[in-house]
Structures are given as structure tokens and as C-alpha cells.
Nucleic acid binder design. Structure first.
Lengths: 195, 195
DNA sequence: CCCGTTTGGCTAATGCCACTAGCTTTTAGC
DNA sequence: GCTAAAAGCTAGTGGCATTAGCCAAACGGG
């Protein structure tokens, strides 16, 4: 029996490709093994199990997503950066729905979990983009959370086929980004929560 | 062997309660049967299977959610209605994370699927609330999609523990609603996508 | 009130899937 | 070349959803 030349990285890579085709919840070790031309138990020589595999895909997804956003916003600022970054994220989710779902389902396992810096990279990309709007320090975290909420929500709903009415979804996305941009530029002072 | 007095409705009800405790992906027929004091196969006399059960929970969740939003926004308008409706949704998701997850995972099976009107009720609740802002007709659908995106995204991230930094999440939610309210009141004309 | 039918329990069995044990062959280091 | 680790394999085990088929409980018309 010749060797297949697998490694944790190559197994994860193949699993990521497969999960985008068949969906996060349909990933099975048997299917992945078949895809790699190997029997199911052989996979356990490279990854600890299905949970470990999903976690590795999640880390990969967060890194890829962060890079996509960083590359898109590089050298731009203001609305241009917002639109480019948001578009990059939306495209990533539509092209890699399984990876993205894995990224969302993943939970941090400990302080040295590589998922932590991976998520940090995504947040850093958005934070850098928001800096162009010169918000107050105490508003920045709220704006970041809003941005994450709206982009995650839109992507998740779109990927799940949640937008039924036949008004163009692209138009809605563009409109939404314009709305956010205008709001961020306006900097309403009375949005600061009172205590 | 005495009868347990189950019905499709009571089984679904029990499953909904269970799923909120243990999480959507941990629901199993065995656990539900134990909870109901019955053996696993007996459940199949009332629901067609796990997929059917999840679908019933989804329909229930959408109806409950729509009612919660409707009740909260009843008799209010503008920012008051927005805040009350959004708060009602956020509360519902935090109190019933399993049901809500089932609602999101569900897919419409056909034209007479009761999930269709159930989702319609949620959308109708939001649409009624948005009417108070007197938006242009062609902006309304975009605003509705934005609202769904942001509320779903926020709820999903919060339920998944996605907000790590120790700035108060309530403050972020309040800030976000203020942001949306101000933007909707402003009605920027240049948000209409050009064709 | 009784009897036939429907309903709702049950046990037993099937099949799929993740995962483990333990064996064998390949490969890499010396 | 020899030794040992690494990477494949076959053969289980156990948990899960689901189905088949049996039997008792409720129920309705005579």
C-alpha cells in the first residue's frame, strides 16, 4: 500500500474545499477520506477527530477572511475602504460558505488557541478601516460591533437564502453601506450611552 | 403500559424547551424521549423524524418571535418602536437560543409550508414599525433588509459569545439602535442605487 | 355493554457514522 | 542495511436515527 502523502495541513485544506461544496453540517470523515483516496481511520493519523478538523478549518477561514479584508482596504480610506472591505467579506462568505460557517461555530479552547489571533486579525482589519472615520474613542468599539453585526447578519442571511423578495440584493448591500458611511461621517454626539 | 398522552404539539413544545437548554445541535431523539418519559421510537408516532421536529420548532419560533415584536411595538412609533422591537427580539434570542437557531436553520420545503407565513409575520412586524419613518417606497425594502441583518447579526454574535472586549454589550446595542434611528430619520436621497 | 378498529406505546433490528485497537508496510535517520 | 517512527490498513465498538412488527389501550357504533 503506497502512501498518500497527507499531512495535517493537506487534510485540512481538502476538508475546507469539501465543506464549501457540501455544507458545514454535511462534512463527514468518510466523505473526506474518499476524496483523499484513503480509508476513514487513516485521517486520524493527521487530525485528532472531527472537532479538531472543524477547528482547523475555522482558523484557516478567519485568517483567509482577515487577509481578504486587509488586501481590499489597503490603500483606501473612508467609504471606499468600507465598501471594498465589506465587499471582500461578502464575496468570501459566498465563495466559502462552509469555511465561514466553521469559523462561526468554532469556540476558543484555551489561551494559546490559534483561533484567538486569527479572530484578532479580522477585528484589526475592521478597526484599521474604521480609523479613517476619526470616531471618538468610546464610539469606536460600538461602531466595530455594529459593523460586524451588520456584515455577519447580511452574509448569513444571504448565504441561507433569507432574502426572498426579488429586489436586487446587491442594491440592498450597496444601500446599506451608504447608510453606514453617512452615519459614521455624521458622528451624532448623543449616541453615547448615558450612565 | 399506560399512555403518555403525547401529541405532535406537546412533543414539539417539549423539544423546544429542551433545545433551548442544550443547544440546537445537541438535540437528540433519545434525550427528548427520556424527558417525556417514553422510549425513543414512540416519538415517531407524533413527528416524522428529527428533521420534521426541527422544522416544527422553527415554525413555532418564528411565530413566537413575530408576536413578541408585534406586542413590543404596538402603540409606539419612531425610535420608541424601533428600540422596543429590537429589544424584544434580542431578549427572545437570548431566552430561546435553540428555537432561534432552529428558525434560522430551517428551509422552506414547499409553497404550503407553514414556515412561509410564519416568516411573513416577522417581516410584517418590522415593516409596520418601519412605516413610522415614512421612507421612500424603494428604500423600505433596503431598510428592512438592513434591520434584519443588523439584528440577526448582533443576536447571533452575542448568543455565540462573539463580543469579547469588556465594553458593555447593552451599551453597544443601544448605540447601534440610536445610529439606525438617526440614519432612518435623515433619509439621505443619494442612497438610492443608480442603474 | 361489547367488539372491531385505530392509536400509541413497546422491543428488536438495521445502518450509518465517529472513533479505537492493533497489525503491517513504508520511509527516514544513522 | 537496520531500526524506529510514521502512515496506511482491517476489524471492531458504541451511539445515533430510523424502521418493522407486536400488543395493549382507548374509542365508537351496534
Amino acid at each position: 500500500m503506497p502512501r498518500a502523502g497527507l499531512s495535517p495541513a493537506s487534510v485540512t485544506e481538502a476538508a475546507a474545499a469539501l465543506i464549501d461544496e457540501i455544507g458545514f453540517e454535511n462534512l463527514s470523515m468518510g466523505l473526506l477520506a474518499e476524496r483523499l483516496g484513503v480509508k476513514t481511520p487513516s485521517l486520524y493519523k493527521h487530525v485528532a477527530g472531527q472537532a479538531d478538523l472543524a477547528h482547523r478549518i475555522a482558523v484557516m477561514a478567519m485568517i483567509e477572511l482577515a487577509d481578504a479584508i486587509r488586501d481590499a482596504t489597503q490603500g483606501r480610506s473612508g467609504k471606499e475602504a468600507l465598501v471594498a472591505g465589506a465587499h471582500a467579506m461578502r464575496t468570501y462568505v459566498l465563495e466559502h460558505p462552509g469555511r465561514y460557517a466553521a469559523g462561526n461555530a468554532a469556540i476558543v479552547t484555551g489561551p494559546d488557541d490559534p483561533l484567538v489571533p486569527a479572530i484578532g486579525r479580522v477585528l484589526a482589519s475592521w478597526t484599521a478601516m474604521l480609523h479613517g472615520y476619526r470616531l471618538d474613542r468610546d464610539q469606536e468599539i460600538h461602531a466595530l460591533r455594529m459593523l460586524r453585526s451588520i456584515l455577519h447578519g447580511f452574509s448569513a442571511l444571504e448565504a441561507a437564502g433569507g432574502f426572498q423578495i426579488d429586489t436586487d440584493v446587491d442594491d440592498s448591500f450597496t444601500w446599506m453601506l451608504g447608510f453606514i458611511d453617512q452615519g459614521l461621517k455624521a458622528k451624532w454626539p448623543d449616541l453615547i450611552p448615558a450612565h
